[in-house]
Design a protein around this nucleic acid. Structure first.
Lengths: 195, 195
DNA sequence: GTGCTGACAGATTTCAATATCTGTCAGCAC
DNA sequence: GTGCTGACAGATATTGAAATCTGTCAGCAC
């Protein structure tokens, strides 16, 4: 790739890293590849990101942010808590499934990071469980849900739907019966929460 | 290993295969190793099992059988359905966790087979979900549970507890908070089932 | 000083030669 | 005939030498 006159920013490095990851996948992508794509030496990349791991974390963070944003809008919406919960989980599952299909290489990166309990992924999960907790709390306030410990209930909702959002299960998401199984689990969980 | 005078039976081959898998793990264990342990040529092993995959399947079947037996006794017991369901799932989780710790190499074999959707593992899961369904049906009969479609409810119970029985999650089972999280999920699911 | 380069040491990965394994089968021993 | 052996072809895994990568840093250009 030819050198550019624009300055080398973290932002530009992250974009190039995403491209490289998409093209080569997490196993083959190297820092040298990223530098080559930017037309700079790899030493310059290390000026902005201390390690290769930090770079991958940053890419994952950028990739995860829109997901958590979209869900936040639902979690803090105006519908009844039951509706919101159903919509939130359905949207989460749909987003995961879409991205696993559209961006398999980036998704593989994300799966590796999840395996190592990376900071970016852990924080993302904490944010999402906190959103769930807000929905549960508002449902309890409105008399729609009964939950002595909303934080525990939110965590239980997260754990009970693991098969539909944990990337290790991504291979099963394509199967036609999965959609039905997801809704069965959702119904059972909602019945368990109702006052 | 010195040759024996006793005849070469499938049973003896399976025992030797278990030993070899325990010692070398699924990645390194070979049919030649099994034959060596038995003091015969590897051609003799192929007389009893058509392929290496068939041999691994048979080992997995033998390994899985006691688990499904123990759970069957609980599923078809006399206690109230709620108690039975709680005990069944708790026993399943405890058994998985124990075996993942005691026999890591054999457990890794089992994980590989689960990944490939092997016949032995698929049948095992079907047996277990059928047991769950019997518990749900008896709960509905006794007026303890409400479930329009017991088969779907059984499947939902299985899917919602995936994090606590699916071998891909085995790494998380050691964490101290997992026991509590399991019971939170269990409580939520039982509340969802109650009439 | 600021931003980048390119050479470097040690760790990791690649590649091709070599060895081992899987699955088959003709044939030996009983 | 029955049960096993051991050699074989093709596929797979191992190995060690060579190439590449990661992360550092002295120094060049501006």
């Amino acid at each position: 790739m030819a050198p550019t006159d624009s300055p080398l920013t973290p932002e530009r490095i992250l974009e190039a890293t995403e491209d490289v990851l998409r093209r080569y996948g997490p196993a083959k992508a190297t820092v040298v590849d990223v530098a080559r794509a930017l037309g700079v030496s790899h030493g310059s990349v290390y000026r902005h990101f201390r390690t290769k791991a930090a770079l991958r974390e940053a890419v994952a963070g950028r990739w995860l942010a829109p997901e958590s944003g979209e869900l936040e809008a639902i979690a803090d919406g105006e519908e009844p808590a039951g509706e919101r919960l159903r919509l939130w989980l359905t949207t989460l599952f749909a987003a995961k499934r879409r991205r696993a299909g559209d961006d398999p290489e980036l998704f593989a990166t994300f799966l590796e990071l999840a395996r190592d309990a990376s900071t970016a992924v852990t924080c993302h999960v904490e944010r999402l469980v906190a959103q769930l907790e807000r929905v549960v709390v508002s449902g309890v306030r409105g008399g729609e849900f009964a939950a002595p410990d909303p934080a525990a209930a939110a965590r239980a909702l997260w754990d009970a739907t693991a098969r539909f959002h944990d990337p290790v299960h991504a291979g099963e998401w394509q199967k036609p019966e999965t959609e039905r199984e997801f809704h069965e689990v959702l119904d059972l969980l909602l019945r368990g929460l109702r006052a």
